[in-house]
Design a protein around this nucleic acid. Structure first.
Length: 227
DNA sequence: TAGGCCATCTGGTCCT
DNA sequence: AGGACCAGATGGCCTA
């Protein structure tokens, strides 16, 4: 899952607009790396999410697990026989208390996974993508990747907005008082130039940012101009 | 039918 | 000792 380890540049900014399912797909597509070969490319190219009916309901605990029921012991033994090496278990019959302990462990694990899925559902609910019955629910891995990208995008937008506010304040002669009293210029550098993100690779902005250098910003037409 | 995604079971490990 | 967490294995469902 190292494909998004250093999300930056175009891939990063590509998330800034239209964070719909399509954008989600783009973002997710950008994440394709070695993992894609393992099947993490379920979202189609360009973010086309196949339209499917509502997600199937997960099997209930009683359906397939080791909760108490009449013929579940048979099912349990069948599963045990099916298990291969390294799987779930040995072939010998267990004492009743061990079996009971196993059932309780299974139930706990099931509950834990359900909690995890609930948390993932909560995450899906707050990240912007096309929430629609006709759109397939995001997979777990897609949810996590999309959430990460969304957080990065929000952080960048917030940072840029802070710099812009500081810059506007400075233009109105409010820099000195505001910088010391208001939270509009929380960053030292932002109190000077809104568009200097700290990078020194680029030259100074030819106009209002002339005294400063930094990362180009879409909020400054000069900063976005080619030299 | 193959591949993707998922739920579940299970044993191992670590922590309290 | 018991619970939480993790990873491997397995089988079911769904879609292309």
């Amino acid at each position: 899952m190292a494909e998004l380890k250093s999300l930056s540049g175009d891939a990063y900014l590509a998330l800034s607009h239209g964070y719909s399912a399509a954008a989600a797909g783009l973002a997710y597509g950008a994440a394709r790396g070695p993992d894609a070969a393992r099947g993490y490319g379920a979202l189609g190219p360009g973010g086309d999410l196949p339209a499917v009916p509502a997600p199937r309901a997960p099997a209930t605990a009683a359906e397939s697990s080791g909760e108490q029921s009449g013929d579940e012991d048979d099912a349990f033994e069948q599963r045990r026989r099916r298990r291969g090496p390294g799987g779930a278990g040995d072939a010998r019959r267990r004492p009743r208390e061990q079996r009971s302990l196993r059932l309780s462990i299974n139930a706990r694990e099931r509950r834990r996974m359900h909690d995890l899925n609930d948390a993932l559902d909560g995450l899906r609910a707050v990240i912007p993508y096309a929430h629609s019955p006709s759109v397939r629910k995001l997979s777990k891995i897609a949810t996590l990747l999309l959430a990460k990208n969304y957080i990065l995008m929000q952080a960048q937008a917030l940072d840029e907005m802070r710099r812009l506010v500081a810059f506007l304040n400075r233009g109105q002669g409010l820099a000195a008082p505001v910088a010391t009293t208001a939270p509009l210029t929380p960053f030292g550098q932002a109190a000077v130039c809104p568009f200097s993100a700290g990078g020194a690779a680029l030259g100074p902005c030819p106009d209002k940012c002339a005294a400063f250098s930094g990362t180009p910003s879409a909020l400054c037409k000069h900063c976005t101009e080619k030299p």
